[in-house]
């Protein structure tokens, strides 16, 4: 072993084994990656659709929601911290509803990401919380997994039904429920939803017509 020649031989054969295993691993993984690529894309699509379906009943659209989207730039009237998407729902070619992704910036511990579906007539079809970091057991009742507050308070709401200065939690003199000890969280959600409805009322035409919404 001490001879230089043997050391070289040993090093090369060791490297060879390592390379062989790397190549073998890569081939196997490449094969699996390629074969699962389509099913994964399909599964992600389905998951996304299922999420959208929670706020918008399937009966309200016959188009492919994931293809008929519109980017909403950050800032602007919705004042989202980052760019989000609007999903346009159509029934036999006619606009039937829109799903807006918005971000409520003033939760108790940071941003609350929301999905808000508004029917063409300005009525809310549903609101869901996509992501939040509210205190467990205190502010997390806005999440459908922890209570039906969000269903009870927003389904069927509209600007026509509730006038502008009633879009507050009851504690602040508005008409939305809250739980004692956690008012900041619902306040943020109510505010963001109200803003989304106003945004929709102001931009209804553009949303369905244009291909991009600027931060106007």
């Amino acid at each position: 072993m001490s001879e230089p020649q043997n050391i070289w031989k040993h090093a090369i054969s060791t490297a060879g084994v390592m390379i062989a295993f790397s190549v073998l691993g890569t081939i196997v993984l490449a094969y699996v990656f390629l074969t699962t690529k389509a099913p994964i894309a399909e599964a992600e699509r389905e998951a996304k659709l299922k999420l959208l379906e929670q706020v918008l009943p399937a009966s309200l659209h016959d188009n492919d929601l994931l293809k008929d989207t519109l980017p909403i730039a950050a800032g602007g009237e919705l004042n989202n911290r980052e760019a989000t998407l609007a999903y346009r729902a159509r029934l036999q070619g006619k606009p039937s509803a829109v799903i807006l992704e918005t971000i409520a910036p003033d939760g108790y511990s940071g941003d609350i990401k929301l999905l808000i579906a508004v029917k063409a007539d300005g009525e809310i079809a549903g609101v869901r919380v996509l992501a939040h970091r509210e205190t467990p057991g205190l502010g997390d009742y806005i999440d459908i997994a922890h209570g039906d507050w969000i269903k009870k308070n927003f389904d069927g709401q509209s600007l026509a039904k509730t006038v502008d200065d009633q879009w507050k939690v009851k504690k602040d003199g508005g008409s939305f429920d809250y739980m004692a000890g956690a008012t900041i969280t619902p306040r943020a959600v109510v505010k963001a939803t109200h803003k989304a409805l106003q945004y929709y009322a102001a931009h209804q035409q553009e949303i369905f017509a244009s291909s991009e919404l600027g931060a106007n």
Binding site: V28, L29, V32, F33, T36, I40, A43, E44, E46
Partner: peptide, 11 residues
Amino acid sequence: LIDLLMHAYFH
């Protein structure tokens, strides 16, 4: 491998 398979079939 298992991660990819799960992603595809147990999303």
